[in-house]
Amino acid sequence: MLYAILCYDSEDVVGSWTKEEDDAVMAKLAVVQQKLADKGRLGPVARLLPTTAATTIRKGREPLVIDGPFAETKEQLLGFYVVDCSTLDEALDTARDLARASSSAGAFEIRPLSIFRPGSLTT
């Protein structure tokens, strides 16, 4: 089963990390990612730009384009992973590993995927 691990955190807090702090967190996360990649379990990984760079299209008869993210929430979706796990427990373990590597106050939402196309991007 493929799971998406969606990373939620306070953009204010993450945004106030210094470059050194940010780099340190990314380095720790890279270790966890490498372990998954070595087992062939790591799909695409993305870190999103701040929500201020987002534009939302609200669906409707005449779709409405609005600035900013869809909802004004305390924690924002900052990025996501797609990982291959045989059980939810395994997906939770993976998320715990990631949480230990970046112990800020946010949350990970673990959502099974229904459709996955790896795409043709080579970055």
């Binding site: 702090e21 967190v25 800020s104 106050a105």
Partner: peptide, 15 residues
């Protein structure tokens, strides 16, 4: 990130 570093970041962003 340690707790203290997190608190520091939280205080800065809440300021």
């Amino acid at each position: 990130m340690t707790d203290i570093a997190w608190i520091d970041a939280a205080l800065t962003s809440a300021r």
